Simulated assay, not measured.
Amino acid sequence: MKRIFLSAIAVMAFSFANAQDGHFKVGAHAGVVLGDLSDSYSANLGVDVAYLWNVADKFSVGATTGYTAYVPKSNNYNFGFGQVEIKSPNAAFIPVAATAQYSITDNLFVGADLGYAIYASSGDGDGGVLYQPKFGYQNQKIELFASYKAISDDATLSSLNIGFNYKF
């Protein structure tokens, strides 16, 4: 796990040295949890950092990381002897992924992230395969996007998100 994280840092550091070939972006996202674990978590919040190299006229590839957390829910259960409140554990991840983006027009794009999400909460937990297709609006300085994010291991923790990136 440490090697994956250190490799991502090395890729990001190298990308700063070659800034003329692409662009760096920083942003945030928020979303609602779907699927398998929607009874345990209510929202997805996070920050994103990415660097993309321009490899063709409208196509860029790069590396992305950040921090994403899932807000746990508390559920009340009645076991016959009284009501018990059970709170889901915190779930936070550090994604380390490849990213790609294709500009359909000057202002519309599609993209995807594919990699691994490292578990970053206390207690027992596993990371998982991360995949995140995106669709959005962009101009020279900003991006607004909608995405479906999923982290899959034994179960799939997924969310429908909206996000914002600022490009440098």
Rank of each mutant, 00 (worst) to 15 (best):
N139A: 01
G62Y: 08
S121W: 07
G82W: 09
A28I: 02
Y137N: 12
D154S: 14
A150G: 07
T68V: 11
Y116A: 03
G46H: 09
Y119S: 11
V32M: 06
S15N: 15
S147V: 07
G127V: 09
I162S: 01
Q138G: 13
G22I: 15
N90D: 07
D21Y: 15
A112Q: 11
Y77R: 03
A117V: 04
N90R: 12
D124K: 06
A19I: 09
Y70R: 00
A155K: 04
Y51K: 14
N165D: 10
G66L: 06
K73N: 03
S152Q: 11
P72T: 11
A50G: 04
N107A: 08
L144P: 05
S38D: 07
S147R: 02
L6I: 11
V32F: 07
S159N: 13
F79P: 04
Y166W: 02
F135H: 11
G115A: 08
A155R: 06
L160H: 06
L130R: 10
D113L: 03
L37G: 08
G22C: 14
K2I: 15
N18Y: 13
N90H: 06
N161W: 02
H29I: 08
S122W: 00
D36C: 00
A43H: 05
A19D: 03
D124V: 05
F168N: 08
V55H: 03
F93V: 01
H29Q: 09
L157C: 14
F168H: 01
A91T: 02
K87F: 01
G27D: 00
S121A: 09
F5E: 12
F145S: 10
V129S: 00
F145Q: 08
T65F: 09
V49Q: 09
G82K: 06
V110C: 09
F16N: 03
D154C: 07
S152K: 12
D57W: 01
G127N: 15
V110N: 08
L37S: 04
A150E: 04
Y77Q: 03
N90I: 03
I104D: 01
